[in-house]
């Protein structure tokens, strides 16, 4: 068991370091090497600067020592990353970590809401579909679920902006909150806080809807499959013969055994949700981390782009890691298994 935890931890660390390495080389390969570009810009604008000054500034900006040997640059870069130094945004002139930590709560806010909503809707409908397997209800909802799950979520986004945003003018078409709204979150100002949160939710609602519609279809289909399998299990028949109430069977037997395997999938989906926000946030001009990734790309602000990428990857690593470590506590069936799968 201990070895299992050790293995998982080691794997998480190796993954993070590998991705950092990947980021380092990708940064250097980017068209119009950002270091050179920035250096040229500096020289042009500040002819009085010495070579050392310029080098220093470039290093500060990009977290790269331009003239050092490759391995030194690499070690310097990774060491910086490990201390939370993601470099400095070329365009904004502030540390990348600052931009990300400002944007991240918004993405987490929308994505976790969307994810939990889709999960709740999905497993409820999936369970009912399984109970009514083969009925019109089941067939209809199965096709609907497949259909929903087969549309990219940003397409639902475009459609919802077009229809609910521009045509019916029911929802705002972008932004985090109304311009006249003062961002307030505090226990001492409950009314303002509620009004602000409501406004933020209203602005995020189409984005959340787009993600939810697509993801709920997937969860419903998985839950349906799991439940149908459980409904066919011997222990369910025995439970009925033992005279247990249908309610207890539905919750303790079918529900529990069908949902538990989805637990890991949910945790991992949380990790991947950050990455999934890239196109969606652009569609809604919603300044979360995904939005800044594309912004960074378009402005050739590579440190920003790579910083977002690293944060997104770390989110997945964390999701997987937590799932690995806690699944045994959640599902007793997994307890006896260790890291014996390799």
């Amino acid at each position: 068991m201990q070895q299992y935890y050790l293995e998982r931890t080691l794997q998480a660390v190796i993954t993070v370091v590998s991705v950092m390495t990947l980021a380092f080389f990708l940064l250097r390969l980017m068209p119009g090497n950002p270091a050179d570009a920035y250096r040229a810009e500096l020289i042009q604008n500040n002819p009085q600067l010495s070579q050392a000054d310029i080098d220093h500034r470039v290093e500060q900006k990009l977290n790269v020592l331009p003239d050092a040997p490759l391995h030194e640059q690499y070690i310097n870069y990774v060491a910086g990353l490990l201390q939370g130094d993601l470099g400095e945004s070329i365009n904004e002139g502030v540390p990348v970590s600052e931009i990300i930590s400002e944007a991240l709560p918004w993405t987490i806010f929308t994505m976790s809401l969307a994810l939990l909503l889709s999960f709740a809707i999905g497993i409820s409908f999936g369970a009912i579909m399984a109970y009514k397997e083969g009925s019109y209800f089941d067939n209809g909802l199965s096709v609907l679920s497949i259909f929903c799950n087969s549309i990219p979520n940003y397409i639902v986004g475009i459609l919802s902006i077009w229809f609910l945003g521009y045509q019916l003018e029911l929802f705002p078409t972008g932004g985090r909150y109304s311009t006249e709204m003062e961002p307030t979150v505090g226990l001492l100002e409950p009314i303002q806080t509620l009004a602000f949160l409501g406004d933020a939710l209203w602005h995020a609602s189409l984005l959340i809807l787009s993600y939810t519609v697509v993801a709920a279809g997937g969860w419903a289909l998985r839950m349906r499959g799991n439940s149908i399998q459980v409904l066919g299990e011997e222990y369910l028949r025995v439970a009925r013969l033992r005279g247990l109430s249908e309610r207890r069977i539905a919750t303790r037997y079918v529900g529990r055994n069908a949902v538990l395997p989805l637990y890991t999938a949910l945790l991992i989906a949380i990790g991947f949700a950050l990455g999934g926000s890239v196109i969606l946030e652009q569609v809604f001009t919603y300044p979360g981390v995904g939005y800044y990734m594309i912004e960074g790309l378009e402005a050739r602000d590579y440190p920003l782009m790579m910083g977002v990428f690293l944060v997104m990857t770390v989110a997945v690593v964390l999701g997987v890691y937590i799932a690995d470590l806690t699944y045994g506590l959640i599902d007793p069936r997994a307890q006896t298994r260790g890291g014996d799968h390799r």
Binding site: L115, R222, H341
Partner: peptide, 29 residues
């Protein structure tokens, strides 16, 4: 096998991102 993977329900612990079927949480991972 797809609907008869009783034993493999626990496999998800070790194979988190394992996606045999095409239904996913939200599109591209």
């Amino acid at each position: 096998r797809v609907r008869a993977r009783h034993s493999s329900t626990t496999d998800t612990a070790d194979e988190p991102a394992d996606e045999t079927t095409t239904t996913t949480g939200g599109g591209i991972r």
